[in-house]
Design a protein around this nucleic acid. Structure first.
Lengths: 353, 353
DNA sequence: TTGAAAGCGCTAACAA
DNA sequence: TTGTTAGCGCTTTCAA
């Protein structure tokens, strides 16, 4: 079938050991042998069996990531970018990336257990951390390597990278208040997610500082999808006292909210301000472009993966808890400079022609 | 460290062989032994070492997929959904999913070779097929299992699932012609991709049937991203004879084109028609909602994966070449009051004749 | 019904 | 500088 060390050994009339060492560049092999072994190996088209190497070395050289998904229409631009960041770093460091998709339930935990106990992966990357996170509890308890993107509500005795959600939302809210808004609404994320609280906290902190209260019925929880944002925004806009500013907890929901507003004839950025969080590529190209908080998603993926590999290899980590300061990206959906930009004099130009 | 067959064998005072057979439910083990072995195994928290099983069985129980990506901002909602479809089927069938991201170049081929020769995966799923597809040529040549999502331009002697792109575009074009459009433009995909030609062919076929020519400068090639669509649409709309209908080769570009049109004060669906292809979740929630061609992306991922597993296991395949008839999804981006316009076009046609 | 032995392909300790 | 031996954890003949 495929070429093994044994085959090469037979050809060069040496032991399997010598061949192995020659190929792995041990310095106790004569240059001549080394050269010959390598030549023959190349000629025969030898590639080591990863399976055998892994069994022998007792590691899978594989990093696992289990994406929490709801239903089949899983379509989050956030994750594809994060995945690219993780994957490229993994490949660069000689690791494979094993991806699963599971709804966050009992079965999910089972998948973790199977992969840990079957030693299929050397470590996990945890995304979308929960307030009380069983995944983290489990991995911590058994001492299995992992790095989280996000924190939990309990003690933070593990490695993670997170964005300062609270700060990000403070900046957003502050910006909106400055623009003169007083009637706010928030399309929040599922309350079991850790960042939900932080983001909400950031908002209310700023608002209350300005003597503005975010009313109970102006905070609605949604599912981080565009459809969810659309639905909740519709409800908010149909109220008797609709908000003039809607702060969504991610870009996807903000985009959905924009849709709902526009459907009602509102000019986003003019009649109403809508903001997001994440700065997915789409945020730049929506109409109007979305004011949001930038997360360097690809780089975060990269960093998380790098940290995990360090942990797996027992290498020291300069910092194992990273909280990034996000930056506000002001575009037109909040109305900062809406009037000029939204309606260009294009129609007139067209008539001229 | 972790529990092995040996540990269990010692406990129950039986051989490793017997333990293995008991756990694998061989029928030449006494019921009592079986029961005891299982009890002890459960007590000790035994999970077989996947690594060892794989080496022994000489298969990786892993399916590979290498996503062609350009640059770090890889953010395609299409892929995340496809991945979910593939991944869930894989898990269901006891396979792992190994995901890589590589730009489509020489290095990409190297990644294929390494994974094939290192026997890291039992088969590949190929996405975004090219006219001349080195990946497919390579895998076919060495007889390695794979299933493609899409076809190539040469002979089609391999398993694939594809959507009838040509037909899909015909339906779109036909719809737009009926709505009275005569000045068309197309935002096309990279010409090295196979579906690009099919989609373009579908469009021109219908148009020429109606005596409409799609002018050279009204066909522009873009990169399937929202930004690309935005840019190309901007160019088209700033022409002296701008189109009244823009057919984009995927939803993302259509969304970008909508942005460009709206920025110029045009009401999409009224002043201009814009259509997409794919029906990503976002298409439903854009403003206006996007008229597009539906691809059951999740199900396609599911099917492709199922076919691949059949091939890997040497099981017969009822059909190894599937071309799905897509369906038109009429929303508002092509003209909100479609019925009136259609009637008008019929009237005009009659007059013309 | 059970066990001994072989081996998947590789690496590493030890000996020569 | 090289080879021998052992073994990673499992499955699968073959023999008892």
């Amino acid at each position: 079938m495929s070429v093994t060390l044994k085959d090469i050994a037979k050809h060069v009339n040496k032991s399997v050991t010598t061949v192995s060492r020659a190929l792995n560049d041990y310095d106790d092999v004569s240059p001549e042998t080394k050269a010959e072994v390598r030549r023959v190996a190349a000629e025969m088209g030898y590639t080591p069996s990863t399976l055998a190497q892994r069994l022998r070395k007792q590691r899978s050289d594989t990093i696992g990531i289990i994406l929490p998904t709801f239903g089949p229409r899983f379509s989050d631009p956030f994750f594809s970018e994060f995945l690219a960041g993780v994957g490229n770093k993994a490949t660069e460091q000689g690791y494979d990336l094993m991806v699963s998709t599971r709804p966050p339930n009992e079965e999910e935990m089972e998948t973790y257990r199977v992969n840990v106990q079957g030693r299929r992966v050397d470590g996990f990357i945890i995304v979308r951390t929960r307030c009380v996170d069983l995944r983290i509890q489990y991995l911590r308890q058994i001492g299995f390597p992992f790095v989280a993107f996000g924190r939990t509500c309990g003690d933070l005795d593990f490695a993670f990278v997170d964005e300062d959600s609270e700060y990000g939302m403070q900046v957003i809210a502050d910006h909106l208040v400055r623009l003169g808004h007083r009637r706010f609404a928030c399309i929040s994320a599922p309350s079991y997610l850790e960042f939900t609280h932080l983001r909400l906290k950031g908002i209310t902190k700023v608002l209350s500082r300005h003597g503005i209260t975010l009313e109970e019925d102006h905070i609605c929880e949604s599912d981080l999808t565009q459809g969810g944002g659309y639905k909740q925004a519709s409800g908010l806009l149909d109220m008797s006292n609709p908000p003039t500013a809607i702060i969504a907890c991610n870009d996807l929901m903000a985009l959905g909210a924009m849709s709902a507003a526009q459907e009602r004839g509102l000019v986003v950025g003019n009649d109403i301000a809508i903001t997001g969080f994440d700065d997915i590529p789409m945020a730049e190209h929506s109409h109007p472009p979305l004011t949001t908080v930038h997360q360097p998603i690809y780089r975060i993926g990269n960093t998380v993966c790098e940290m995990l590999i360090h942990i797996i290899q027992g290498l020291p980590l300069e910092r194992d808890q990273l909280i990034l300061k996000p930056s506000l990206v002001i575009r037109q959906s909040c109305g900062a400079d809406a009037k000029q930009k939204i309606r260009k004099s294009y129609v007139n130009n067209r008539k001229e022609v």
